[in-house]
């Protein structure tokens, strides 16, 4: 039972990590809380669905398609909602992000209605894999773990060994010094938004496939939980986000297994953690000194 819940928790954790890593990178370069990240996750899931239904894509191509569309959507959000407000009070950009999120959700409701729909059939059935007689994992969750690990390794290699990757780190550490080295900050910001959005889309498409369900507001709770993960791990810290995502996934999964009939919903745990971390260690597990917003 414990091993089973841990395994489910790790799979869930990787979903949160894929969403949250973009948030933390974006916070890193712009010191911006990107509240429209949840809808990007939705855009990814719906784009993958459209790819399968209308463009005859197979599952993998459709996921990649969803990542690209969501990546472009993320870049556009930055261009239209955040860049014109750069240099203003952080609250202004935050509200702008919330506005974009509401706009996109409403747009999706107008186009697709607010009813949940199933993820289109692709020949990729969700079925359990039995590891031992008592422990099993659905193949979709296994894919999330594998794909998540591969993405994190690729991201690490990109940030460590490519020119653009090092530039992203440099901009996160000192934007002005980076621009004095000839780094086009706007370009770096766009690349960061693209990568973060594509990873969120990956999570969105896999969750839609795993639960066989898509709806326009599907991104709002995962988006908020990703915030909790980022705050738990420490704003701007990628290792912190990974640990934070795993902690949240495992805690949620364990509570589901052991604390049935809880007073609060499982979804509330993330926010309980958020409140505790803000009270006890506001800089997060791996964060630097908190900056006053």
């Amino acid at each position: 039972m414990l091993a089973q819940q841990l395994l489910n928790g790790i799979a869930l954790g990787f979903t949160y990590i894929l969403i949250a890593v973009g948030l933390t990178m974006i916070y890193g370069v712009l010191k911006l809380l990107h509240f429209a990240h949840g809808v990007i996750y939705t855009v990814g899931a719906f784009s993958a669905m459209i790819g399968i239904l209308y463009l005859n894509m197979n599952f993998i191509v459709a996921i990649l398609f969803g990542m690209i569309i969501a990546g472009i959507a993320g870049v556009l959000v930055e261009r239209l909602a955040y860049r014109p407000l750069r240099g203003t009070h952080p609250i202004t950009t935050l509200i702008s992000g919330v506005g974009i999120a509401i706009f996109v959700e409403s747009l999706f409701q107008a186009i697709f209605t607010s009813d949940p729909r199933g993820f289109p059939a692709t020949g990729m059935k969700v079925e359990p894999i039995h590891i031992t007689s008592s422990i099993s994992l659905t193949n979709s969750k296994l894919y999330i773990i594998i794909v998540g690990l591969v993405c994190l390794l690729l991201l690490y290699a990109f940030l460590k060994w490519t020119k653009m990757g090092v530039a992203i780190q440099a901009v996160s550490q000192d934007m002005r010094a980076a621009s004095l080295m000839g780094v086009n900050v706007n370009q770096v910001v766009a690349v960061t938004f693209f990568i973060g959005s594509a990873l969120a889309a990956l999570a969105g498409a896999f969750v839609a496939y795993d639960f066989n369900s898509l709806f326009p507001t599907m991104g709002s709770i995962p988006g908020l939980k990703a915030f909790c993960v980022v705050v738990l791990g420490g704003l701007g810290s990628i290792p912190g986000t990974i640990i934070g995502g795993l902690i949240l996934g495992i805690v949620e999964s364990l509570s589901e297994g052991y604390l049935t009939g809880m007073v609060i919903d499982k979804d509330a745990i993330a926010f309980v953690i958020l409140i505790l971390i803000l009270l006890l260690k506001p800089s997060g597990l791996f964060g630097k000194q908190v900056e006053k917003v």
Binding site: V166, Q169, Q173, D174, R176, A177, A178, L180
Partner: peptide, 11 residues
């Protein structure tokens, strides 16, 4: 070479 050096501290 900026005032206050401004090297990238975590690189």
């Amino acid at each position: 070479v900026p005032e206050g050096r401004r090297v990238f501290p975590r690189l």
